[in-house]
Design a protein around this nucleic acid. Structure first.
Length: 617
RNA sequence: GGGGCUGUAGUUCAGACGGUUAGAACGCCGGCCUGUCACGCCGGAGGUCGCGGGUUCGAUCCCCGUCGGCCCCGCCA
């Protein structure tokens, strides 16, 4: 007996108004409850779950077939929609007020015993999840994530199409792009000894499309980087890549904002406050010790170098004499949250962050008490005008005057702890910035349900690389300097700021872009500063330089990390949970078993001979 | 390249000073059950304790190595 006269209906389409109508449903057996003379099945299709009932008095034949059913069998049933008997409704199900009384059933496919249960509450080992990813993706959470992703992509395409953008594909088999990461290489059979590189991003091609006159380009595109993996890094990941001509930084920013506002509104029902806040790179580093500040909480870094000009503390004095800085953060209520042992452990943490040590003082309530005799070693000496005093740690090296200004500047109150870092500016900033995040995470200072966007702008154009002993580009070598900084290129290029912008969400960089250089002369000057020889530039990306010389319009763009945005928005811990078929930390795919050996003929065709790694020169 | 956590039944986890037969829950198999919904009840099967070596009378447990998974640093926008 088969089903099939009726058109298939999805579980979500069935409701109480359809009582006594006949429907055909197809799907997977989620739960199977055999009560002897009555069998219940929770049938799952992609849209949801509905209960179906087999009663031997309604259809003995169906009932007998149903006896053979096990979990995850694929079935097709025909039956009537019935209101459930009073008292047997299931409030946890959208379809919990009704059920399907089955008249006909067909088993479309059976299912082996599962390696893990589909709706297991506890976390299954990720290796097993990935090996049986098709089963993992049957789980509601994973399915929801991927369906959300699909809607997200659709909304973006719709929005950009409405705004005059063209979706144009760019090659995957291409030439190494000038961004910093390691390329995935693809050997060429027709050109033995030569290799394609998979694109780290479509950077050069999208600029060339601007030269071609498309004016507005976008692509939701795979990018490849052969670097070590992290929870938020996969070797292949997806960017929303955009480029526009005759445009300025503020236009790209406001378009991006509009797009995110639409996404948050339509998909999450959250209204974003536009415009998104903008912060200078320098301010971000100064106040948050990071170029991607998490502004969901305060605890800003403060420079206190001036206070300690004449400090009796050797570490501080030495640091200042070497042109270093002293920075501090105030950890609200830290004295109560942290034991002495916790504080000591933070010193180890700080060293992992690259700091030399960690100075601290507790903030206590000042008491009216007689001043101790001079030359005592008590740390309870000082009393500030704010009714607070510093105690413990380095307090004994801090004068009353210093204390007063410190407490003021850090807005410290009774019960707080102040942490200090004395080092060269960049180190002090980043170390304290990381401590800020560490403490916030550990002591739950971050409002989890909040979404805080932030633009970080005015990045330096260059930085000096100690490793390479030369000036390198912060963004990429096609980033345009700020107009007013062009003159600095000849005098002090490291001071020049660029027309670039990063979009940060909850302390994670989710996108970045820049206005590009569209004049050959300026581009050549940049190469010169980067010590890239003209012949090397030609070799690597001569085709872009050529293109720029044929009437390139002013242009710029931005790219967003789709996986990361989805990870944040869906509040999952890893981008693997928003990617259908991700790889393990060793960049392997347990499902397909890639990467794998290839046949020797394949290698011969490619002119490739394998040698053992330790025999490499 | 480095640091941390981890690997015991199909799954999630217990476990022991180094000492009889390594446990639980869920799943699986068999049986019973007409209102369940993570159904229930009765019975049963299921283990190279990741792999290799060492110490020991004896190792799942201790030591060394190795492989895998996850998190992080380096690396990477």
């Amino acid at each position: 007996m088969g089903t099939g006269k009726l058109k298939r209906t999805l579980s979500e389409e069935i409701n109480e108004s359809l009582v006594d109508s006949d429907f055909n449903l197809k799907g997977w057996v989620m739960h199977y409850r055999d009560h002897g003379g009555l069998i219940f099945i929770d049938l799952r299709d992609y849209a949801g779950i509905i209960q179906i009932v087999f009663d031997e008095n309604i259809s003995a034949e169906s009932f007998n077939t149903a006896k053979k059913i096990k979990n995850e069998y694929v079935i097709s049933v025909e039956g009537k929609v019935k209101i459930r008997p009073e008292g047997t409704e299931n409030e946890n199900l959208k379809t919990g007020k009704i059920e399907i009384e089955v008249k006909k059933i067909e088993i479309l496919n059976e299912c082996e015993v599962l390696p893990f249960q589909i709706e297991e509450e506890s976390d299954i080992n990720e290796l097993i999840r990935l090996k049986y990813r098709y089963l993992d993706l049957r789980r509601k959470k994973m399915k929801d994530n991927l369906i959300f992703r699909s809607k997200f992509n659709f909304l973006i395409r719709e929005f950009l199409n409405k705004n005059g953008f063209f979706d144009i594909e760019t090659p995957f088999l291409t030439k190494s792009t000038p961004e910093g990461s390691r390329d995935f290489l693809v050997p060429s059979r027709l050109n033995n000894g030569n290799f394609y590189a998979l694109p780290q991003s479509p950077q050069l091609f999208k600029q060339i499309l601007m030269v071609s006159g498309f004016e507005k380009y976008y692509q939701i595109v795979r990018c490849f980087r052969d670097e070590d993996l992290r929870a938020d890094r996969q070797p292949e990941f997806t960017q929303l890549d955009m480029e526009m001509s005759f445009i300025e930084q503020k236009d790209i920013m406001s378009l991006s904002e509009e797009m995110f506002a639409l996404i948050f509104d339509k998909l999450l029902n959250i209204k974003l406050n536009l415009p998104i806040k903008i912060m200078d790179y320098d301010d971000a580093m100064e106040s948050y010790g990071s170029d991607k500040p998490d502004i969901r909480f305060e605890m800003r870094l403060k420079t206190v170098s001036d206070i300690f000009g004449g400090s009796s503390l050797n570490v501080f004095r030495d640091c200042l004499s070497k042109n270093g800085v002293i920075k501090a953060i105030c950890f609200k209520n830290g004295s109560n949250l942290l034991s002495r042992k916790d504080i000591d452990e933070l010193v180890t943490v700080i060293k992992d962050f690259g700091g030399k040590g960690l100075a601290w003082t507790k903030v206590g309530k000042a008491e009216q008490r007689p001043k101790p005799a001079p030359f005592t070693n008590s740390s309870l000496l000082t009393v500030s005008a704010q009714g607070c005093k510093l105690e413990g740690g380095i307090a004994k090296f801090i004068t009353e005057e210093e204390e007063k200004i410190l407490i003021d500047r850090l807005e410290a109150e009774n019960g707080d702890i102040i942490f200090y870092q004395a080092d060269e500016k960049k180190v002090a900033d980043t170390v304290l910035g990381r401590l800020r995040l560490y403490l916030a995470k550990k002591y739950n200072l971050i409002p989890e349900s909040k979404f805080e966007f932030l633009w970080v702008v005015n990045f330096p154009l260059f930085e000096y690389s100690e490793e390479e002993k030369k000036i390198v580009a912060i963004h990429h070598p096609f980033t345009a300097p700020n107009e007013e900084d062009i003159k600095l290129l000849d005098t002090n290029p490291l001071m020049a700021k660029s027309q670039s912008y990063d979009l940060v969400l909850n302390g994670e960089e989710i996108g970045g872009g820049s206005i590009r250089i569209h004049k050959t002369e300026l581009q050549e000057k940049i190469f010169e500063i980067l010590s890239i020889k003209p012949e090397d530039a030609r070799l690597k990306f001569g085709f872009l330089l050529d293109a720029l010389s044929f009437g390139a319009p002013p242009h710029g763009g931005i790219a967003f990390g789709v996986d990361r945005v989805l990870m944040l928005v869906k509040n999952v811990d890893s981008i693997r949970d928003v990617i259908a078929f991700p790889k393990t930390q060793k960049a392997q795919c347990p499902l397909s078993d890639a990467p794998s050996h290839v046949r020797s003929e394949q290698l011969r065709e490619l002119g490739i001979k394998l040698i053992e790694k330790d025999k490499l020169i």
